[in-house]
Nucleic acid binder design. Structure first.
Lengths: 144, 144
DNA sequence: TTTAATTCCTAGTATTTTTATCGGAATAAC
DNA sequence: GTTATTCCGATAAAAATACTAGGAATTAAA
């Protein structure tokens, strides 16, 4: 039950952008520097987030990235789905197009994974970037 | 957020053993045949489950595997931890020995993953093999 | 109009993890 | 002693992950 670094780094980046929401675009380099991530790698993650409609890129000097919606309108679930695909502990309980357990046997197992999936989705969908910023402002140590 | 096939196959095997609990040992070949899994691969999973103390191997002719505790005493969480390691969406919120996010920054992220972890663990720890057998007996179609 | 800062794009590659496969030794029932 | 089985260690193939590299396109500002 591991997230890949895509999800982890991607959420860091989105949180970073949320903290700067409403200001000038944030250059990739700034995010990568603060989060100590490879620029090139992070760039790919931001491309995925852009294609998913979660961020916008502003090209040219003084460009950077900005969230395409308000932080309150973007959840952890949005970010993770953009980077890791639909939430699904196993293929047969995929949120979008559940693969078919060709044999209809043993599907008690499937109900277990469905409960796990729902529980993950519920948590992720209930936390917005704005929630995270609010928590951060209560603990200044944890700010950037 | 994917489980590897180890967890998926392993839970299938444990459920299979639970359905035969109290009877003669179940040979690997029988489990593999019913679940349509590679014998050799399943053997490795059962070795992991044995080392974790969840099953016992009975060697020799008429041997096989049996659960080492009653199905009510074994949860999905036990099985998954034995096969996939401690539940942890990311290394820094590992259930057992959380890796240290050397930089103390951005750890709002960590609280998010901790909530995800707890929610997964809560579901997995609340479902026992006995619960699954009970559900199965209500839906005879889903029995072996 | 040049320069510098930046996103955007495509491709490649090294590493790690996953998913097996193989062959045989040890054990025990019949 | 034969057969059915677990147990063990090694290896290999496949897939995913995590990154690296280089350069084209775009834009602000000097």
């Amino acid at each position: 039950m591991r997230l890949s670094t895509r999800g982890h780094y991607g959420l860091k980046a989105m949180f970073d952008l949320a903290l700067y929401y409403g200001k000038t675009p944030v250059p990739l380099k700034a995010v990568a520097g603060r989060q100590k991530l490879s620029e090139h790698y992070l760039e790919q993650l931001l491309a995925m987030l852009r294609r998913a409609g979660l961020v916008k890129g502003v090209r040219g000097a003084r460009g950077g990235y900005i969230l395409s919606r308000q932080p309150a309108e973007i959840t952890v679930g949005d970010v993770i789905r953009a980077l890791e695909g639909p939430i699904a502990p196993v293929y047969c309980v995929n949120e979008e197009e559940p693969g078919d357990c060709d044999e209809a046997d043993y599907c008690i197992i499937r109900t277990v994974w469905a409960r796990v999936r729902d529980s993950i989705a519920e948590v992720m969908d209930s936390i917005s970037l704005a929630d995270m910023c609010r928590d951060a402002s209560k603990n200044p140590d944890k700010l950037i």
